[in-house]
Design a protein around this nucleic acid. Structure first.
Lengths: 189, 189, 189, 189
DNA sequence: ATATAATCGAGACGGTACGTCCCGTCTTGCA
DNA sequence: TGCAAGACGGGACGTACCGTCTCGATTATAT
């Protein structure tokens, strides 16, 4: 049965090659063929692990952002959100941003993959924001529907700017967004 | 100097074929090869007009949405915005949504094209919203920076949902977004 | 290192398709695209083996004529040559003739390829004739320069007629040519 | 009726462009598109005069070699032939040789055109040689069939060498060929 | 003078083939 | 069984020419 075990060094090489290519040459250069070549790995070895380029990228991003989901919890929800967004926005300037954009590209025209991205990547970060906003509304309750809407107000602008104008995702922008949304959360009916 | 003039029927055929393919088979199936074939046109004829698939799609969208930029102007900015967004969101369920998603896919990894999309497609719609929000703030002034931010709050969620969950762009969502943002505009310092 | 070995069936299919196309539809119809299609093979698979249409044709001819280089050796050099030429001329009426003409067409304007043809195709047949003519001159010696010249007198007319008037390459023509040249070889100073 | 007359300067430009391209860049670069471009002429203007690239080249050659058919007539047929061949071979080193090779390429796979070349280009030169050989046989008669064969012995080697090894067409080669064939003509039964 | 008619440059047009890239699958031999 | 190597059918890329066509601007002859 069991045969030769998978070489963990190969996993690393694939993910590293993916990140490098997406960052250096952009999303278009990141073909599976190119990733395998740069990783010094055969194509088959990539396909044994992933079914599509999207999954490689998703995994590369996961590997990169593992555990990096900060959940600040001070007395000030506004400051918590600002801190979360500042960190998140900053990350979008580098590899993470490039990988995120690549994921969107892969999602378009592939509904299954889009769903996977939503569940594995988007939802967890929405939860983090929802937790903060729930604190902002306390002691009153924050309903699910309203929470979803407020979270959209946070992440909508981020992805929008990430896709069309990444440099605008500054700390100042994070501050402003955090203030606007926490205020709206606090004041809601 | 003059040469044989371009056949306008060919332009139409290309754009129609593009819209059909993007809608029916999705973004991935919409190759230039396929567009030319369906339009009953040679590839060269497409390349004579457009340098990339992205440009074809952008033009198809422009043709589709020509002049369709409603600028409601009633006594209520909130209702104006709600109306604008309701119409816009509704449009995203059909061809327009498919084309918009396709444009995003093409923009990723092609900064030049991304800039073109921003200027020809995104900016005009931002202006329409900015105009409404300026009325909402009246008689006080709405600064450029703040206006830009508020417009992000409007369009950010739209693109975010368009990419990851198009069906959620309902009339109710439009209403809620219009209310939240006009209120914020009105109440701003 | 090793990789999947080339499928010999594919080689055959390519060569067979090439011969069929050149014979049936003529040299002009024999595109690499067409060869690949008829062989049921991808274009890449052809390009992996050959750099140009010329090389495919040369190989097809080599495969066809493999080992078919008769070297008759009776008491009569004249009869030897006549026999060789009769067989050679007869072959030019079929696929071999079509392939030979195609090779010339490919050679024109491609000096490298012309040289390859000369070495792989032309020279071996010249040697066969030279051997016979050396016997015709015996016991005196046949010098290199003179031999080359006499061989030209044999093959020059053949190619000339092959290109401009193939049906004239009859057995009678072969006989006459063999007689004239062996006589000249025998009588030379 | 009559309309604007053809511009003779255009004819010249086309022929000159053809000769230049065939000589400089080789036969492959001599597309009708390229010829028209270099001549500063529209494609239609070329097609109004010629039905194919072959015809352009044939005409270019005709223009180049107009009246250049020497018919030396001294007391010595051998010297006549040597002189004719020396001049002919010399010409093959330059544009004429390139054009001749191009004509062969065009003839292959186009029987109609091959016939035209034979009649307009090949036959006249055969006649010139036949005339000389008839003198060499005098006072006996030189039959048609035998004459054709002897002419093949002259031109066969020339085209053979022109196609595969043009530099070998030297004056010495011309002399040797003239001697061999006139002797054969004189001595024939 | 003013049609009428052909020529010219320019360049669009439907095609066909080029040679390249990448897809996802497969088949080797070695570890 | 993993892995590097690389063959394989397939599909699209963007380019070059093919031969035809349609334009506006010339330039002749024939009213």
């Amino acid at each position: 049965m069991s045969g030769r075990p998978r070489d963990p060094g190969v996993d690393d090489a694939i993910l590293r090659a993916t990140m490098e290519l997406v960052e250096e040459k952009g999303y278009r250069a990141a073909s599976i063929e190119g990733i395998a070549a740069r990783a010094g790995v055969s194509k088959q070895t990539v396909y044994r692990r992933y079914r599509s380029k999207g999954e490689v990228i998703l995994d590369a991003l996961a590997a990169y952002a593992a555990g990096n989901l900060p959940a600040p919890d001070t007395a000030s929800p506004r400051r918590d959100l600002a801190q979360l967004l500042t960190a998140t926005f900053a990350a979008q300037q580098g590899i993470r941003g490039a990988l995120n954009r690549a994921l969107v590209a892969e999602s378009i025209g592939d509904d299954d993959f889009a769903r996977t991205v939503w569940e594995r990547l988007i939802l967890p970060r929405r939860e983090a924001v929802r937790t903060i906003l729930t604190r902002a509304r306390a002691p009153r309750e924050l309903g699910d529907a309203e929470a979803d809407f407020l979270v959209d107000l946070v992440y909508g602008p981020m992805w929008y700017r990430l896709l069309f104008d990444p440099p605008s995702l500054t700390a100042a922008y994070a501050e402003r967004l955090a203030e606007a949304v926490t205020e709206m959360a606090a004041g809601g009916s």
